[in-house]
Design a protein around this nucleic acid. Structure first.
Length: 336
RNA sequence: UUUUCUUGGGGACGC
């Protein structure tokens, strides 16, 4: 049982919800009785898959086996129904909770935000008896998602003044907001803040900082952060490529791409958008066409409509309207 | 029972 639970928990945390549910099925087939730890992972897996049928089965199982009284099970179900867009159901479970914890409220708040009901999220946030780091991060993230970047920074300062310590999630949100604002002074302050407070800089935060400096018009700082990253996935490389592309340096962008490939990092569709955009802005038609061809032939990635869009943009900017409209006609999908 | 449940990163064009 513990082995299965451990496997399921790991799968869910790796984003492999399907595999987690496969273990769950296997358990049921072998007659192994799931306990509440199992169920937590199962519920979480259903939530992330959007599998409401299995999710309701889990709910039923919890009711039949008297597991609904555990607040973490109820919290997981609140999260689940919120992800399914079933706010009323989540609210019902929340209202019936005898012991509402900070996690219950955080789950409700995150759910409201996800469903676009930011007002309800605010209300609960303001009225909650004790908020924690996740509560603050959720609300800051909500503001960023709404493109209310100044307000997000303001809430971050508010958080500081309340003595709440920021973590790497907070900093990703704040750095992202700063990037959209294009505020270089703030960017430098954020970078210094992270170092001063020894906030662990993982790959995601590193990537966000690269992106932030690039958007703030400081590609040198962006590349300095990038070069100091101990590990880089395709998103990190894409941010760096975007930084050089902002200088209109398609050649440098391509060098970075080749370096990435030579290090064994597999390109995805997004990095090609960044590169094609760089060529488009630099007017490098041949290089763009060559790269576009290589997508499928070399990297085994079928161009999607956004890539055709980039090519149409590239050709059109160069005045090659005939080629652009031919490309549209030859696309394997309907133009949008 | 990695960490029982809740929060974070790279995307073209136009406006």
């Amino acid at each position: 049982l513990v082995l299965c639970n451990t496997m399921m928990s790991n799968y869910v945390h790796q984003g492999l919800a399907r595999e987690a549910l496969a273990v769950f099925d296997e358990m049921l087939q072998q007659g192994l009785q799931p306990d509440r730890v199992t169920l937590l992972s199962a519920i979480s897996a259903c939530s992330h898959l959007g599998d409401s049928l299995s999710g309701r089965c889990c709910h039923g199982y919890a009711l039949r086996n008297g597991l609904e009284g555990f607040d973490n099970i109820s919290n997981a179900m609140i999260d689940m129904y919120m992800r399914f867009g079933k706010q009323e159901m989540a609210g019902k479970i929340f209202d019936c909770l005898p012991k509402k914890t900070v996690v219950s409220r955080n789950s409700m708040i995150a759910g409201f935000v996800r469903n676009g009901d930011v007002e309800s999220a605010w209300r609960m946030f303001k009225e909650m008896p004790e908020s924690d780091l996740v509560s603050w991060n959720t609300m800051i993230g909500a503001l960023v998602e709404e493109s209310k970047f100044e307000e997000a920074i303001e809430l971050f300062r508010d958080m500081q003044s309340k003595g709440m310590k920021a973590d790497k999630v907070t900093m990703v949100e704040v750095a992202s907001a700063c990037g959209y604002l294009g505020a270089l002074d703030l960017a430098k302050w954020i970078h210094a803040y992270i170092e001063k407070n020894e906030i662990p800089c993982d790959m995601r935060l590193g990537t966000t900082l690269v992106d932030m400096f690039a958007r703030c018009g400081d590609p040198q700082s962006a590349m300095r952060v990038f070069n100091n990253m101990p590990r880089r996935d395709v998103s990190a490389w894409t941010a760096a490529i975007g930084a050089t592309a902002m200088e209109g340096n398609g050649e440098r962008a391509m060098e970075l791409f080749d370096e990435m490939v030579s290090q064994g990092v597999k390109p995805d569709g997004v990095v090609f958008v960044a590169l094609l955009t760089a060529f488009s802005h630099g007017g490098s038609v041949e290089q763009g066409q060559k790269l576009f061809k290589s997508m499928k032939e070399v990297h085994g990635i079928s161009p999607e409509i956004v890539h055709y869009g980039c090519m149409v943009d590239l050709l059109s900017r160069a005045g090659m309207l005939k080629e652009a409209s031919d490309l549209i006609k030859s696309m394997p999908m309907e133009p949008n």
